[in-house]
Every structure is written in structure tokens, then in C-alpha cells.
């Protein structure tokens, strides 16, 4: 049960903060370029990396129990279901 009382070294917090700022700058920089349909995936990938960093370190998910990690994923998993099946419909409409 050491996980519940894990004290993260300050160095890690500052490193993550630094990475988040850098990634924010990067996402602004890269949005200047037009990749066509890839614009959204590029922007989202960077956002996902940032969100993952925040969750793993600031929110201590890396040090949490398996159960907590499972529930963290479940929210996003069911969000995925919502998107997947809705777009199953829209992307397969023959008349579009």
C-alpha cells in the first residue's frame, strides 16, 4: 500500500511542467502548417501526450493501484465507444 502514500520528488514535477510548456509551444508552432486531414490527429496526439503526463505524474496515476488505473482508462474507453459507433454510421453513408 506504499502507493497511496507515495511522495513524488519535486524534480519530477518541475520536469513535467517544463515538458508541458514545451509541448504547448510545439502545438502552437505546428498548427501554423496545414497537414489537411492530418491537422486534427496531429493536434490531438500532442494533447493526448500532455494529458497523459498530467495524469501520470500530477495526478499520481503512475503510482496508483491497478484498480484506479483501470477506472481512469474506462472513462476514455467508453468515450471511444461513443465516437466509434457514431462514426460507424456517418462514415458509411453511401449517399454522402
Amino acid at each position: 500500500m506504499s502507493s497511496a502514500h507515495h511522495v513524488v520528488p519535486l524534480r519530477i514535477y518541475f520536469t513535467i511542467f517544463f515538458l508541458l510548456i514545451v509541448l504547448t509551444g510545439f502545438t502552437v508552432f505546428i498548427s501554423k502548417f496545414d497537414f489537411g486531414v492530418m491537422n486534427l490527429p496531429v493536434a490531438l496526439s500532442i494533447a493526448i501526450v500532455k494529458a497523459t503526463l498530467i495524469m501520470l505524474f500530477f495526478m499520481h496515476v503512475k503510482y496508483s493501484s491497478r484498480l484506479t488505473q483501470l477506472f481512469v482508462l474506462s472513462g476514455f474507453f467508453f468515450m471511444g465507444i461513443l465516437f466509434f459507433f457514431t462514426f460507424c454510421d456517418y462514415l458509411t453513408r453511401a449517399w454522402n
Partner: peptide, 17 residues
């Protein structure tokens, strides 16, 4: 969670979905 579309067969949803 995976079956909600069966309420929508006649709504204009894609037949493949």
C-alpha cells in the same frame, strides 16, 4: 453500450452501421 443504434434503423442511419 454497443447496441444503441437498433433504436434508429429507420432514422436515416447508414444501413452498414
Amino acid at each position: 453500450f454497443l447496441v444503441w443504434g437498433h433504436h434508429m434503423y429507420v432514422s436515416g442511419m447508414s444501413p452498414y452501421a
